[in-house]
Design a protein around this nucleic acid. Structure first.
Lengths: 236, 236
DNA sequence: ACCTGAACACCGTTCAAGT
DNA sequence: ACCTGAACACCGTTCAAGT
């Protein structure tokens, strides 16, 4: 219509922060595979060169996007009256919910943590979980092992559960989580009875489980293992 | 030299199996980012169309490559005299070592398991770990939770440790694992003393830990949590 | 049934040139 | 200091055509 053809909000000047924010939006709405510099330049109404002035490359952009979201998820302070155990559950749940809200996050968490453990993402998660591990009474020599185990569990599960949401936006469409689990469960039931006796026996649990409840059950399980290493404590 | 210019072994005809095997070789030697259809056609001395006749697309090729390697890693039967606990450790260690030998594997495991849990990779791992979980005496209602927790831990750690090897082939070169941990540890020590008190305190453990030993310590920790849910058993 | 290879529709990244 | 946008060197995938 008329002289103004650009439909993008243009008041805000380009900045690293705005680029990262737009990247997160694009990741959330279109999926990881659709985050391209082309799509970004279109949304921001600039050229690729402008983006490269603020951001070194795509890897750095993904790292920054991941960091923003994780910082947000971890920033929720546990309630003052919470036991360490409750605090760990709430930190873990916060990360779990972040991966639900941002289906691309889980894969990026794994990627970031693996490729740049010195980056900002790992310390954030490590710190949030580790403080509560310490409060649990774990001796200092066990801090690293216990916190690592917790973190790996959280990342692992979050990755698996989130991906299905991702698929809905990315691959076949209209498939709900229930249908997805239904299909997976049926596939497990169709496995060879001898070679896959255990997996077949557990197909029903795969079908009926509730993701969040299952996630917390696993956190409790790891917590039980950690608490077993606490000198004075009796098991809850 | 002379009339024979193609240096590739040509006796073997093209087949899905040969394509997958070549893909694994390429992944191992050149890294995940260098596995392209271009590189593949060159090594196999064909055109892309030939590959697409045997394999649907790149995703399927990666799935097949992952499946081969996992099948191999999991195929090692635990010793007849092993306790379930020892058997779990040896299955876990087998997967850990596979990700050490194939640095690209960890990321693919996460990917495969997330995007296609009905695929062949997940059941293989689930079955190998789950049989021992059952042998441990875990009640049936806890099989899924316990096995999932174990598997996620194994994948999580494997991912983190393997990536550094990957980086050596992929990003900056010449960096050894020790130097890598040294740098990460120093970065953790330089964090803000208030916001990152725990992470700073643990920087030394990051620097000094042995990957494999740490991995097994985590497995033991999760095992302790699982055993806490076994009715009759006393803790080891 | 199996393979060829040109072509298509994309990528991330660079860089001379502008303001 | 910040931005433009054409150009470069790639991708995965398709498909008419061959044998």
């Amino acid at each position: 219509m008329g002289a103004m053809t650009k439909r993008t909000a243009r008041a805000e000047p380009l900045s690293r922060e705005r680029i990262v924010r737009t990247a997160v939006e694009l990741l959330d709405t279109a999926g990881a595979r659709k985050l391209t510099f082309r799509a970004l330049t279109e949304r921001l109404a600039t050229g690729p060169g402008a983006i490269y002035w603020h951001v070194a490359n795509k890897d750095e952009l993904l790292a920054a996007a991941t960091d923003t979201v994780v910082a947000d998820a971890v920033s929720v302070e546990p309630g003052a009256g919470d036991s360490p155990r409750e605090a760990i559950r709430s930190v873990a749940l916060g990360l779990y919910e972040a991966t639900e809200a941002h289906p691309w996050l889980a894969a990026q968490l794994a990627e970031q943590f693996a490729r740049r453990p010195w980056g900002s993402v790992a310390p954030r998660v490590f710190e949030a979980l580790g403080r509560q591990v310490r409060a649990l009474g774990v001796p200092e020599s066990g801090w690293f092992t216990a916190t690592s185990a917790l973190m790996h569990y959280v990342f692992g599960v979050a990755g698996q559960n989130a991906a299905n949401t991702d698929m809905a936006a990315d691959l076949p469409e209209g498939e709900t989580r229930t249908e997805f689990l239904e299909a997976a469960s049926r596939a497990w039931e169709a496995l060879d009875p001898e070679a896959y006796a255990f997996t077949r026996a557990v197909a029903g649990q795969l079908r009926d489980h509730d993701d969040r409840q299952q996630f917390l059950a696993g956190v409790d399980l790891v917590l039980a293992g950690i608490e077993a290493s606490v000198p004075g404590a009796a098991s809850a």
